[in-house]
Design a protein around this nucleic acid. Structure first.
Lengths: 207, 207
DNA sequence: CAGTATCCTGAACATGCGTTCAGATGGAAT
DNA sequence: ATTCCATCTGAACGCATGTTCAGGATACTG
């Protein structure tokens, strides 16, 4: 019997813990405010180990970034599969964005990512691919709706960009706790925009 | 005759130079990346003087923030007065946002401000008041259009929030040089949204 | 002209933080 | 049992950077 009960995969467990801790700290203190000691403390290990696994602070931050990316993809796809029909999928995307449903993650992380993308290339490509992916999903839903003659956008591509951008813009207020913004109002406003953009009666969309 | 040709206001000139330098450095390196030495170098003075005038790095950053706020107010009001009629004013706001006209400032600064607002109270209140002010201007323009029966939004308040948020969202892509986004497309997309929201024929809006 | 307050500088100081490193620990292989 | 390698720790190192400070220069004042 070994003295540890963690089994053979202890090191990788540890690595994963550090990764999660890194994300947690970034969420709290932002990319710029995250220190190696914060990560170590949050993960319950030494600073040395963080550097051992990721080489440097920047390495840990980048690793956290891609880990986040993966989570995002998995969660969005999983959620979208669970819905049937373009109307319901559209509603779901509104909820995913507003964070009502099982949240994709805190919008504050996205703000942090955007700013980091201004100065860091890894962040730039990560955010670009996340955005592209999200817009692709939205585009798919809209195409589906158009094919079923439920949606009648005057220009589907433009509507995709606008609806995605609107979500980002609303997200800023949500992330900053702007008075007058709430997850409920977020969802409301976004669905109304979708109704306008895609020519769907609001009642239909609200169900 | 004094040996300097700067006149009596030399100290305040100097202070102003430092303020402008601070804004410039923030624009380049972000809030988090701005160092006292950067400001001093950019302003052509010593580190000591920066601290002498603003007490601390944080003080300089905050001062730059409020200075930015003032500039914004002045420029927006000045621009909006130059336009006549709600349609033209709306078009102007689109241009102001996209940075085509005399730019309000780089959108990257706004991104920086948003993220700083996550962790710093001065930034939080600054950005909130900037946002409120901008939305108030937009709201005024829309009210004017409604009064003249040019605009027919189903809910003016909601349209204000959506159009302002859409601008923020588009701005992110512009700030990050997203492929597929440009100042021209920014203005295009935003005006189309305004057309949808306010029930204005596109031809009218495009002039 | 003398005195004083304001403005400004460059160097010194203190500290926080990323990184390095010498070794401890423990399991696997021989 | 001995060796070896991966894993992990805590301390030490060194650098970057915000802040302090002693003093010089300049401009007002009486």
């Amino acid at each position: 019997m070994s003295t540890t009960e963690l089994g053979a995969k202890a090191p990788e467990e540890r690595r994963k813990r550090i990764l999660e801790a890194t994300v947690a700290v970034i969420r709290e203190r932002g990319f710029a405010g995250t220190r190696v000691s914060d990560i170590a403390e949050s993960a319950g290990t030494s600073q040395g180990l963080v550097l051992y696994h990721f080489g440097s602070l920047a390495g840990a931050l980048t690793a956290a970034l891609t880990s986040l990316e993966d989570e995002f993809y998995v969660e969005v796809d999983q959620q979208l599969e669970s819905a049937s029909g373009p109307i319901e999928r559209l509603r779901l995307m509104g909820e995913l964005g507003s964070g009502q449903g099982p949240a994709v993650g805190d919008w504050r992380l996205w703000l942090e990512l955007w700013v980091r993308a201004l100065h860091d290339d890894d962040a730039r490509t990560a955010r670009e691919s996340l955005d592209r992916r999200w817009r692709a999903s939205l585009s798919d839903v809209i195409s589906e709706g158009v094919a079923q003659q439920l949606f009648t956008p005057s220009d589907a591509a433009d509507s995709v960009v606008r609806l995605a951008s609107l979500m980002d813009g609303l997200a800023i207020q949500l992330a900053l706790d702007d008075p007058g913004m709430s997850t409920h109002r977020f969802g409301q406003l976004w669905l109304e925009a979708a109704s306008l953009e895609l020519g769907i009666p609001l009642d239909t969309l609200r169900g």
